[in-house]
Design a binder for these strands. Structure first.
Length: 433
DNA sequence: AGCACA
């Protein structure tokens, strides 16, 4: 009759080894946790986790056999079992004398980094970008230090950094189709966006569009028109990069809560809109106002604080958006400083502007919500920048008109709070051979 | 809960 002890792998006692075999681990167990577990007993020189079909086994290798013995001995008599994440793990000497091949080739420091780019517009990461973000380091030390410095770090897209181009077409303005990393044709980028509004239960006014699109940079011109029974608008930014950010962030999102006024955004073929007249459908915010010395929100000559990279190529510091991605995707209030500082300070106390627009009646009962929290973007409260010229007057829709017209649940800034992150790339560095 | 990967 065969006894259990005749089966080597199930012997109750194993010959000592400086390698310990652990089982019943949580599958999330990391090598760091293994090291923590073994550290009290000696120097852990190697580990391997996520072993076995269930990935719930692991190995710990000590520098010295006595250290492994110490750990086994301790837990053999301890009232508290060894635990990882509160889960009891079972220890025994491994039937191997060392952990072999713990480091895969991907973990062995080499001089080439494999970079994985996550993000909404990862396709826009061109070779040129990678050439600067990644490469081929001359030695493993450099690559390793770069990995340590950058791995998992959130890299905000910084349009002020001339060394981080977005895509060739965005730089040379040739308007030619560029190819994505997958070889697919990309729509030529433009500083002018074409926005189509779907499910337009509420009126989308020029002010609303200006407010929403100004979240990404100065809006120079807007032209609204009807097409195919729906509303479309052209929104012009001073530069392609801003338009890219706006498009990536807003595409498919709704200006109002409840799926209303869904935006579909593409790049226009235009680069400079010809605004014949300023009215409720079209506006040129760049037209100098004689009464103002500085009519245009000062996008030139601004020197925002640069938080990373070389000096700004222009006024717009994309890094200021980065914190917003970490907390509710809300751009910080100071974001407007980059382009709208010429707009009179407009603190949080102007929700009335939000309600002055002639919204169409909502389709159903609309629970009202306090407008607090909607005005976290100073200067963007529907008041056009200082360049506004007559006959337009943003306040022409008086409170009296708003009283008899129901308003959407949230103001247009709803979309700002719910939109996509500002194209944050997360670089994941893996050192390969 | 019982010995990996290449």
């Amino acid at each position: 009759m065969a006894s259990v002890s005749s089966q080597p792998q199930f012997r109750y006692t194993q010959p000592p080894s400086k390698v310990l075999h652990l089982r019943n681990l949580p599958w999330e167990c990391t090598e760091e946790e293994l090291i923590e577990l073994g550290k009290p007993f000696g120097k852990v020189v190697n580990t391997k986790c996520n072993v076995g079909a269930n990935r719930n086994q692991a190995f710990i290798e000590f520098a010295d056999l006595n250290q492994a013995i110490a750990m086994i001995s301790y837990y053999a008599s301890s009232s508290e079992p060894a635990q990882v994440r509160g889960k009891t793990v079972y220890l025994q000497y491994s039937n191997r004398q060392e952990i072999v091949n713990n480091k895969t080739t991907a973990d062995v420091a080499g001089n080439v980094l494999l970079v994985t780019i996550e993000g909404q517009d990862a396709r826009l990461v061109s070779i040129d970008v990678l050439h600067l973000a990644l490469v081929q380091f001359s030695d493993a030390e450099t690559a390793t230090s770069a990995k340590n410095a950058l791995d998992g770090r959130i890299i905000p897209r910084d349009y002020t950094n001339p060394y981080l181009p977005v895509a060739p077409s965005a730089i040379d303005g040739s308007g030619q189709f560029s190819l994505g990393l997958d070889g697919k044709k990309l729509e030529p980028e433009s500083n002018v966006l074409l926005a189509s509004i779907e499910n337009m239960q509420y009126a989308v006014t020029l002010d609303v569009l200006q407010m929403v699109f100004s979240a990404f940079g100065p809006v120079q011109k807007i032209a609204m028109f009807d097409k195919n029974g729906g509303l479309q608008a052209l929104i012009q930014y001073p530069d392609v990069q801003t338009a890219i950010v706006a498009k990536e962030a807003l595409e498919g999102h709704c200006i109002y809560d409840g799926g209303f006024c869904k935006l579909h955004i593409s790049y226009s073929r235009h680069t400079d809109l010809s605004i014949k007249v300023n009215n409720d459908r079209s506006r040129d915010y760049t037209i100098p106002n004689p009464t103002l010395v500085n009519p245009q929100p000062s996008i030139l000559g601004q020197q925002p604080v640069q938080t990373m990279g070389p000096p700004a190529a222009h006024q717009y510091n994309g890094t200021q958006y980065a914190p917003g991605s970490e907390q509710g995707m809300m751009p910080p209030p100071q974001h407007s400083a980059g382009w709208a500082s010429a707009v009179p300070p407009m603190p949080q106390s102007m929700p009335v502007q939000m309600t002055n627009h002639p919204y169409m009646p909502p389709p159903a009962s609309m629970p009202q919500m306090a407008p607090t929290g909607m005005m976290q973007m100073p200067g963007q409260g529907g008041i056009p920048p200082a360049g506004t010229v007559p006959p337009y007057t943003p306040n022409q829709m008086t409170e009296s008109s708003s009283e008899q017209i129901q308003k959407p649940l949230h103001g247009p800034l709803f979309v700002i709070r719910t939109m996509r992150k500002f194209t944050i790339w997360r670089l994941i560095f893996i050192v390969v051979e």
